[in-house]
Simulated scan of single mutants.
Amino acid sequence: MTYLEFKGVSKIFYDNQDNENYAVNAANLSVDKGELVVFVGPSGCGKSTLLRMIAGLEEIDEGEIVLDGKVINEVEVSKREIAMVFQDYALYPHMSVAENLSFGLENTKLKQAVINEKIEYSLDVLELGNLKGRLPKQLSGGQRQRVALGRALVKNPKVFLLDEPLSNLDARLRVQTRKLISDLHKRLDATMIYVTHDQIEAMTLGDKIVVMNQGVIQQVGTPEEIYQDPSNTFVANFIGTPSMNLLRCQLNSDATVQIDDAIIQIPETLATKAKDFLGKEVIVGIRPEDILLVEQENGLEPELIEYLGSENIIYFNTPQGELVVKSNVSNRLDREKSYRLQFNSEKLYLFISENGIRI
């Protein structure tokens, strides 16, 4: 059941010449109760602006946001029943962990016994009980982030809003805190909106992913749908490590394309969809893991090989553009050798050259 809905939501800024610039442009989205939805995209794409409009920190210039059946465009921030976790933690430095947790509840009509119960519950869930008397400066980055999560948790909000909460943590703590947020979501059956530019966070956390670029929602789907069925070249390029290879090729009349010296037959189902593009330039997409390397004399020589222990990332230059291959072998590949590329044609994607939309 739709719990949070965006109906044509836009945020407009004006430059010095009063020209309209859309930070968010006609966003339409439905979020079910209990979902963890991740907004992902590059810096400046509008994801944080959209989050701040839910919270009431940015005015909505066009459209409506509906929460639990009620339009909240004009509802005061304090009455939206929303809790927000920021990138910089926003803790009170002179207050202890327990005092930080209780601060947002002091002006409510809750009895002190209920407040104490909420605080103890949050301390227990976040494993902060032995730290409740410490000040923020006495905590690690991961502990401070847990306190920030706890301050949202005690409010029992309708929606949790998390704005790049892991950006200030090192790699190990990011993994730990990511797991904590996932566990909290399942344990509380909470509705969460999570903003990040990190596709790994998006893929591992989200029930649903919203990919944004230049203020426009590019695609909405599960992590599997976003990865396996990208709607355009932006989504295909943004999601995946390394990114999908996108090469400009001629789609021949016999439904083949040529990448370096390899002639690849387009699968029949895809060829049928692309029949109007025969003889024209298209963008061919293929994931780095869907290309196999075979050692061969006088083959293609790598420009660079990155050895990552469990895999090698190999970079080639071809007439159609740079080509990246991911080889899941644990030994370091030899840059001095040459290779023949074998493409899994069943994993090919075709996009319209002019606008990047998937065929």
Score class of each variant (00 low, 15 high):
residue 102 S to P: 06
residue 39 F to I: 09
residue 2 T to P: 06
residue 298 N to L: 08
residue 253 S to D: 15
residue 248 R to Q: 12
residue 297 E to N: 13
residue 270 L to E: 02
residue 292 L to Q: 13
residue 197 H to L: 12
residue 329 V to K: 09
residue 131 L to Y: 06
residue 308 L to A: 15
residue 156 N to D: 02
residue 353 S to H: 09
residue 37 V to S: 05
residue 185 H to D: 03
residue 262 A to L: 12
residue 269 T to H: 11
residue 59 E to N: 12
residue 280 K to C: 04
residue 324 V to C: 10
residue 197 H to Q: 14
residue 274 A to M: 05
residue 217 I to L: 02
residue 20 E to D: 08
residue 166 L to Q: 07
residue 138 Q to T: 14
residue 34 G to T: 06
residue 43 S to H: 10
residue 161 L to W: 00
residue 321 G to E: 03
residue 271 A to F: 01
residue 53 M to G: 01
residue 92 Y to S: 08
residue 144 R to I: 03
residue 38 V to A: 05
residue 67 L to F: 00
residue 115 I to K: 05
residue 119 I to P: 06
residue 254 D to F: 10
residue 73 N to R: 07
residue 241 T to C: 08
residue 301 E to T: 15
residue 96 S to F: 05
residue 275 K to W: 06
residue 212 M to K: 04
residue 60 I to P: 00
residue 255 A to K: 13
residue 254 D to W: 11
residue 115 I to R: 07
residue 312 N to A: 05
residue 102 S to I: 09
residue 57 L to I: 06
residue 172 R to G: 14
residue 216 V to M: 07
residue 67 L to H: 00
residue 198 D to R: 04
residue 132 K to C: 15
residue 203 M to I: 06
residue 345 S to G: 08
residue 136 P to W: 00
residue 185 H to V: 03
residue 227 Y to G: 08
residue 149 L to W: 02
residue 171 A to I: 07
residue 347 K to R: 10
residue 65 I to G: 01
residue 346 E to M: 15
residue 243 S to P: 12
residue 293 L to K: 06
residue 173 L to C: 06
residue 102 S to A: 14
residue 294 V to W: 14
residue 261 D to A: 10
residue 44 G to Q: 12
residue 113 A to Q: 12
residue 199 Q to H: 10
residue 269 T to A: 15
residue 335 R to Y: 08
residue 331 N to T: 14
residue 124 D to L: 14
residue 344 N to G: 15
residue 250 Q to T: 14
residue 202 A to D: 03
residue 354 E to N: 13
residue 284 V to W: 01
residue 18 D to H: 14
residue 269 T to G: 11
residue 71 V to W: 01
residue 38 V to C: 06
residue 177 T to F: 06
residue 43 S to A: 14
residue 175 V to A: 08
residue 137 K to G: 11
residue 229 D to W: 15
residue 262 A to T: 12
residue 149 L to K: 03
residue 328 N to T: 11
residue 48 S to I: 07
residue 40 V to N: 08
residue 270 L to G: 03
residue 166 L to E: 05
residue 32 D to M: 11
residue 98 A to V: 14
residue 220 V to Y: 01
residue 81 E to R: 02
residue 331 N to E: 12
residue 129 G to W: 04
residue 167 S to Q: 09
residue 163 D to E: 05
residue 7 K to W: 02
residue 120 E to M: 15
residue 178 R to S: 09
residue 44 G to I: 15
residue 314 I to Y: 05
residue 59 E to M: 14
residue 8 G to A: 07
residue 351 F to T: 03
residue 184 L to F: 01
residue 265 Q to L: 11
residue 111 K to M: 15
residue 245 N to P: 09
residue 6 F to K: 00
residue 169 L to V: 13
residue 174 R to E: 11
residue 347 K to C: 07
residue 319 P to F: 10
residue 183 D to V: 11
residue 346 E to H: 13
residue 106 E to T: 12
residue 242 P to S: 07
residue 83 A to M: 00
residue 251 L to E: 01
residue 151 R to N: 02
residue 36 L to Q: 14
residue 265 Q to M: 10
residue 308 L to R: 08
residue 36 L to V: 13
residue 293 L to H: 03
residue 79 K to D: 09
residue 127 E to G: 04
residue 107 N to F: 13
residue 348 L to I: 10
residue 349 Y to I: 09
residue 163 D to T: 05
residue 104 G to E: 00
residue 274 A to Q: 04
residue 240 G to Q: 08
